[in-house]
Simulated assay, not measured.
Amino acid sequence: MGHPHYIALGLMSGTSLDGVDAAFLETDGERIIRLGPSLCFEYSQEDKLILEAATQAALRWQFEGPRPNNFVAAETVILKSHIRAVNALCEDHREWAAELKLIGFHGQTVLHHPPKALFKGRTLQLGDGKALAKAVGKPVWYDFRTADMAARGQGAPLAPVYHQALVAYSKLDRPTAVLNIGGVGNVTLITKDGHIIASDTGPGNGPLDNWMSRNGMGAFDPDGKYAAAGEPHFPLVRKWLEREFFQQPTPRSADRYDFDVINDMDDLTIENGAATLAAFTTLAAVYTLNGMREKPRSLIVCGGGRHNKGMMWMLREHLDATVKTAEEVGWNSDAIEAQAFAYLAVRAKWKLPISFPTTTGVAKPMTGGVLAMP
């Protein structure tokens, strides 16, 4: 017999700083029983600026010396926003809220250092799990990455075991791969025999978002409109694909700011720059997939990148696989990462592993997460 199933609520705030995703999920920590309702609670412009300032301070700090003072203001924004997201989702869906047993809380990543030859990696997610548990009156599992990194794992990606459960839930043919294009890209291959192999792929939407913002064109490229209107500069893409990250064996992990290549692009128009960065993101994913031991028959794309028509077109051009968006297979892409942390919270409760040698490079399957009681 498996474990009892629970209704859990997952919370995710990605490095793109657009808001807090919250989602209900019913699971026993292995099978998905039901996908629940979800919402995105968007950060105000003021809150975004506070989080952006904390991220920039973290990049300067690099774990050396005292913590930046502005982390305190960022933690206040994170706590307030997550409480509101939980309350709003529970208010809108009382039948789910009535059965809610526990919460999975990711926090806000401001710095991620993968392990190097002689050094363990370090990662920092801002957010106070104990304060959240007290505020919402439910047990909260948080700090999912530290145990993996202490055991010399990459600490990321953590969604692969959930992707495996989603593919089983939807009865999809294997081998299939799930590509998430968020601030950073990551991919999970579910092999023909149901095993998972995963890695960060490199840049997601982060560099393209920065390019649009730096050129005064808003926070992102809507539907990949600018990328689609430009021509990629492939010599630059080839140069970027020779960076240290791509020389590491998989699984490898990255920080959003590891791919800050904009200073190479002074001569490019906005459209050509957008097309070049979209090509970089796409070809980094193709490069990672081509290095895996099985070729997927189908690729399911989730995260903001699924809206980028140029990225989707390039994936179809460069991969011998059927490329679909998450919505085309009946998933809600905007909720997947939040659902994943609901799933990981239930796995953590039952002491089931959340990271594996083939997903984070850790020596043996690892449990993770810290429990805060209300």
Rank of each mutant, 00 (worst) to 15 (best):
13 S>A: 11
15 T>Q: 05
37 P>A: 11
40 C>Q: 11
43 Y>G: 05
69 N>H: 13
76 T>N: 13
90 C>H: 08
93 H>E: 14
96 W>N: 03
99 E>D: 11
113 H>Y: 14
114 P>S: 12
114 P>L: 08
128 D>Q: 12
130 K>F: 15
147 A>C: 13
149 M>P: 07
150 A>E: 14
153 G>W: 12
158 L>V: 06
161 V>L: 13
168 A>S: 11
170 S>F: 12
176 T>R: 09
177 A>Y: 00
181 I>C: 04
204 G>E: 03
217 M>Y: 14
220 F>A: 08
221 D>N: 05
222 P>E: 10
223 D>C: 07
225 K>A: 15
227 A>F: 05
228 A>E: 14
230 G>P: 08
231 E>G: 12
244 E>F: 01
245 F>E: 00
246 F>C: 01
249 P>G: 11
265 M>L: 15
274 A>D: 00
276 T>H: 13
281 T>E: 02
286 V>Y: 00
295 K>D: 10
298 S>A: 15
298 S>T: 09
303 G>L: 02
307 H>V: 00
309 K>L: 09
310 G>T: 15
313 W>I: 03
316 R>M: 01
318 H>K: 08
322 T>C: 09
322 T>D: 07
332 N>E: 14
335 A>N: 06
336 I>V: 09
337 E>K: 04
342 A>Q: 03
354 I>N: 07
361 G>H: 02
364 K>Y: 12
364 K>N: 05
366 M>Y: 01
370 V>E: 04
